[in-house]
């Protein structure tokens, strides 16, 4: 059933995600630019039904890891498997049916309307039976990201945080088993940061795999099932938030002392940098 000929070529559809099954696996990935090693032997499984947060200091290799997963950077060594097959055995379109990617750079060259931008997320499914539900999926993604009220406006006229939500609506509309989000919350206010992470949870609860790069460790601690911490191109910790987010490890990796508190409502770890505070005379 997964191989169905539609239109010009046989496009292999993805299977429905099965919770716990790895949809993307990175094995021994090494990347270097010139002399500088960016990634030094990364092994990572991205499993369906799970929110995986990737954290780490600036320049640790988080975005490069996303580029590895999306085949936008050349590997010196190692392999990436998607849906049990080596990445390069899939066509561009088949990859787009398996993973949606939200990059940090979300600019548009021309002033398309917000609705048109979100509809672009449906393009891998053009001409297939999945496209019957395009309108429903587009409307649903816009509603979930609170972008409905911008639908008729030009994307280029939106503020940074609004653009980021529209871009998120676009990748949600792609409706793929795996979702990669590279710092989606960076330009957003508190309300919408929480909204994004809740959407990530919802996505995972319906069987999707979500990878999210965040700088805010509290968000990762509260919403992720698993956290992978990267430092100097290696994964130095990979596990449940409570195990990964320890004061010693964070202080060491980020080179700044922190203490860990428990969220009074949920018990999730809160990372508080040690601050001198204002001197009151």
């Amino acid at each position: 059933m997964s191989i169905i000929t539609v239109g010009r070529s046989a496009v292999r559809r993805p299977d429905f995600p099965v919770a716990g099954k790895p949809i993307i696996s990175v094995r021994g990935a090494e990347v270097s630019f010139g002399e500088r090693t960016i990634l030094d032997g990364i092994d990572l499984d991205i499993r369906c039904g799970e929110v995986l947060a990737i954290v780490g200091p600036n320049g640790a290799g988080k975005s490069t890891l996303v580029n590895v997963i999306t085949a936008d950077v050349e590997l010196e060594a190692g392999k990436v498997f998607i849906d049990d097959e080596v990445e390069y055995s899939w066509s561009t379109r088949e990859l787009a049916m398996r993973r949606a990617v939200l990059l940090q750079d979300i600019g548009m060259a021309f002033p398309f309307t917000v609705l048109e931008v979100v509809e672009m997320g449906r393009s891998p499914w053009a001409g297939m039976r999945e496209s019957q539900h395009d309108d429903l999926i587009v409307a649903g993604s816009m509603s979930r990201t609170e972008t409905v009220q911008f639908a008729a406006r030009k994307f280029t006229s939106l503020s940074g945080g609004e653009k980021a939500r529209v871009a998120l609506a676009r990748v949600l509309a792609q409706a793929t088993p795996a979702l990669l989000l590279d710092e989606p919350t960076a330009p957003m206010d508190i309300r919408h940061q929480e909204l994004v992470l809740q959407q990530a949870r919802d996505y995972a609860s319906t069987g999707g795999a979500v990878v999210i790069i965040v700088h805010n460790l509290d968000l990762a601690g509260a919403y992720a099932d698993r956290i992978a911490m990267i430092s100097d191109g290696s994964i130095i910790a990979d596990g449940p938030p409570a195990e990964v987010l320890t004061a010693d490890r964070i202080s060491d990796v980020y080179d700044y002392p922190v203490s860990i508190l428990a969220d009074p409502n949920t018990g999730a770890p809160l990372v508080v940098p040690v601050r001198a505070g204002r001197k009151e005379d």
Binding site: T70, D72, S91, T92, R93, E94, L95, A96, M97, R99, A100, V101, L103, D105, I106, G107, M108, A109, F110, F112, E116, V117, M120, G121, S123, P124, A126, Q174
Partner: peptide, 19 residues
């Protein structure tokens, strides 16, 4: 249709399946 999507930028266009 491809030209429309190219407006997302080269990488993002590839990520939604454009060669």
């Amino acid at each position: 249709p491809g030209l429309d999507i190219l407006s997302l930028g080269e990488k993002s266009a590839r990520h939604v399946g454009i060669n």
